[in-house]
Design a protein around this nucleic acid. Structure first.
Length: 760
DNA sequence: GGCCGGGGCATTTTT
DNA sequence: TGCCCCGGCC
């Protein structure tokens, strides 16, 4: 432990060592926040606290995974695995599944992503014959989300005079009805949306003292990462859990709060010391990432905000260069200049492509940079857009799986009841929906027993419905014996999803096939890696529970070999770092956004967004703006962003001093997309069959050697890399090896499935 | 059930 | 300007 602590600065150490009561760690950009959180947890573990008693909440799976693997390196895989560490949503959904009966759900409820919930809201608006210009689905959706974040159930909503009055003034008097219907429909569908996962957890704890007590006893230490991004429900749940022992440590940076539009409430962090008056405050003010110039410039910028916890971030790195500001005539030239500057910096100063990032306020800006980079053969990668699991063809497969697990899932059912086409059209569907509404049951219930509900359909339709029911039921039966990889293959085969796609010979069609292929690969990895670790959760429900809460960033395979310029919105750059950062489009009405022009609070958030952008940089920041730009179909003249003026000019290098060079036309290996591989029908179901897993755990006898393996052997694993065998145990089918991997700590693997070779 | 065309619209998106 | 959604038509 001493050794661990020595790797930390004085102020980091203090934050790690205090665990007696509530604490707030204000962690400036680049101040080693994750390191502190990781070491704090390791410190507790080294002092004999059971991992089971630690609750560590993050916002992204990626953050949780990174922290977990660092703890695994220090403490070993088996300890790290037992930590309650993960996103709010994933840990709470675990708690909800265990206690679902208390809130009137089945434990295998499915989860709506925001697209599903918007579709349902849209459907409800239509069914109520409301005008979707006045009741805009996306507006109603975010309204409902906000309301849920504020702990308001439909019942409370209807009783809330202010809310009702406000809706009336907005001429949206029936909003509460939509909310109530939406709520009930989700419930009969055995479905939760993202907000429900939080709100129901709150309701579970609030309404069931014995359960709250149980988790209070379990979670004796609570840590929350990125506290500035928590919303009201999250804050309230943490407060409930920590009310007795009060050992809650939150980490965050109010200066990086940029998600209020999604319900994040910066007040949670600003007022933490009022909520927990006895709390200790720690500040991590040394920035280990950026040059002094960048840190100073960022400080001078954020000082313009009123709402903040004051801190003095400093850097002891080299002074560095001033921030360059480039003005161009048009948006087109802006792209061209950034591209040529990248080329120039790469040639003259030995940077690689991956040392550059282009950050913008809106996704629409990416296009022009894409073109400019492509023109001079600079490899790039754009982040953003549809995530893997949002793609149509993937959602289709997943929808079948969702129905297998939960046939009451309304949106999943609507999605595939007639895909591929099986003659069940809108008319029939609407009858089913209407009947379900009248009887207060799920669509599946109506569809399975149309005669019981006097559904007015002809015999042909009845036959089609029962055919669909049989199809799903056959998968449901298979599901008890098949793992998710096998089930996925069987769905794709039986339903003919792939053959459907083979018809389409366009490039998009090919990429759809490629995506399904990719999905099957991820199912395969999911199943095989879990089998290897002796984890029996390989069935569809387990997979769905996991992927419903995954996003793009999680599926992204970090390929170290690829070297490209990154392009993304500033929002998605949070938490990342790059040597050189271009922040583009620094114009009034673009950044800051036009919509926040006269709103002081939002303007402060925009400024924080700019702060986040600048503090991503290790060495250079380049700001650009165009005097003229195409926007919404017209060429407009712009003014430079007020944010440029917010930075103290002593840290800036202004336009006239800057020269543009024509790019030379040398080709720098642009990497084209790999072409999709074709998969023959039958591939998934006939090949790569996975053995059934044995769950026998009786034999724990250890051995010096099994087969050709001996304790002390060095092995090379397909995914985990180099490691050393430290223990062998079990017989035949259940033979296991405990291997200490250089990068990931110890893991226990079932030899039957383990994919490694002996190195020596 | 699928395709085409017109109209409306257009931040940011950790789960 | 470009995309997405819906509605109408085949």
């Amino acid at each position: 432990m001493e050794q661990l602590l020595q790797q930390l600065s004085k102020s980091q150490q203090e934050a790690v060592l205090y665990n007696e009561g509530p604490s707030l760690i204000i962690a400036g950009a680049g101040s080693g926040k994750t390191r502190v959180l990781t070491y704090k947890i390791a410190y507790l573990l080294k002092n004999g606290i059971s991992p089971y008693n630690i609750l560590a909440l993050t916002f992204t799976n990626k953050a949780a995974r990174e922290m977990k693997s660092r703890i695994a390196q220090i403490m070993g895989e088996d300890i790290a695995r037992r930590l309650w560490m993960g996103t709010f949503h994933s840990l709470f959904s675990r708690i909800l599944r265990r206690n679902s009966d208390k809130i009137g759900f089945r434990s295998d409820f499915t989860v709506y992503d925001s697209q599903d919930s918007r579709n349902l809201i849209k459907a409800i608006i239509k069914e109520c014959c409301l005008d979707d210009k006045i009741y805009k689905p996306s507006t109603i959706q975010s309204h409902i989300s906000r309301v849920k974040n504020a702990l308001i159930t439909p019942k409370n909503y209807t009783l809330d005079r202010n809310l009702i009055e406000m809706d009336n003034q907005l001429k949206r008097g029936r909003t509460h009805e939509i909310y109530t219907t939406y709520w009930n429909r989700c419930k009969t569908s055995e479905v939760m949306d993202f907000d429900d996962l939080l709100l129901y957890t709150y309701l579970l704890f609030d309404g069931h003292r014995e359960i709250l007590e149980q988790y209070r006893n379990q979670f004796r230490f609570i840590m929350v990462d990125e506290y500035q991004d928590t919303n009201q429900v999250q804050h309230a749940i943490v407060r409930l859990l920590a009310a007795d022992h009060r050992r809650v440590c939150v980490v965050g940076d109010d200066a990086q709060s940029i998600y209020s539009f999604r319900g994040a409430y910066i007040g949670n962090i600003l007022n933490f010391r009022e909520t927990y008056p006895e709390s200790k405050l720690f500040k991590l003010e040394q920035n280990y990432r950026s040059t002094q110039m960048i840190v100073n410039a960022a400080n001078s910028l954020i000082r313009k905000n009123k709402e903040q916890i004051y801190k003095t971030v400093y850097s002891e790195k080299i002074q560095g260069e001033k921030i360059k500001v480039i003005r161009t005539y048009s948006d087109y030239e802006e792209g061209y200049n950034v591209a040529s500057l990248i080329t120039e910096m790469r040639m003259l100063r030995q940077y690689e492509y991956k040392d550059f990032v282009i950050l913008y306020r809106t996704n629409a800006q990416s296009r022009i940079f894409e073109e400019a980079l492509r023109k001079i053969n600079i490899p790039y990668k754009i982040y953003g857009g549809l995530s893997f699991y949002q793609r149509k063809e993937i959602k289709d497969v997943i929808a079948y799986m969702r129905l297998v697990i939960n046939p009451n899932d309304e949106e999943a059912l609507k999605r595939i009841i007639n895909y591929p086409a099986r003659g069940i059209g809108d008319t029939t569907l609407n009858k089913i929906i209407a009947a379900a509404g009248i009887h207060g049951v799920s669509l599946w219930e109506i569809l399975s027993n149309p005669q019981d509900y006097n559904l007015n359909i002809n015999s042909g339709t009845a036959r089609k419905l029962s055919g669909f029911k049989e199809l799903i039921n056959s998968f449901r039966e298979n599901n008890t014996s098949m793992n998710v990889y096998e089930l996925g293959g069987s769905i794709i085969e039986t339903v003919g999803l792939l053959s459907e796609l083979y018809e389409d010979k366009t490039p998009e069609g090919l990429s759809h096939i490629q995506n399904i292929n990719e999905l099957m690969n991820s199912l395969y990895t999911f199943v095989s890696s879990r089998m290897e670790e002796g984890n029996t959760n390989i069935y569809t429900g387990d997979f769905l529970a996991e992927i419903s809460l995954l996003t793009d960033q999680d599926t992204d395979k970090e390929n170290e070999n690829v070297n490209y310029v990154t392009m993304m919105t500033i929002h998605s750059a949070k938490g990342l770092e790059f040597k050189n950062v271009f922040v583009v489009g620094l114009e009034e009405n673009l950044f800051p956004s036009e919509r926040n022009r006269d709103k002081p609070k939002e303007m402060e958030e925009e400024r924080r967004l700019f702060y986040v952008a600048i503090t991503r940089a290790e060495e250079n920041v380049i700001l650009t703006y165009a005097k003229n730009r195409f926007s919404k179909g017209e060429f407009i003249t712009t003014n430079p962003s007020r944010f440029i003026n917010d930075i103290d000019p002593e840290y800036l290098h202004l336009p006239s001093d800057f020269s543009f060079k024509k790019p030379n036309n040398k080709i720098f290996g642009f990497e084209s997309d790999p072409r999709p591989n074709f998969v023959q029908p039958g591939y998934y179901t006939n090949q790569r069959k996975l053995a059934q897993i044995e769950t026998d755990k009786s034999d724990l006898i250890t051995h010096h050697s099994i087969g050709n393996l001996t304790v002390g052997n060095t092995v090379k694993h397909e995914r985990f890399g180099i490691g050393k065998i430290i223990e062998l145990s079990g017989e035949k089918e259940n033979a296991k090896a405990v291997i200490k991997f250089e990068a990931l700590g110890t893991k226990q693997l079932l030899l039957k499935f383990a994919k490694f070779e002996i190195v020596k």
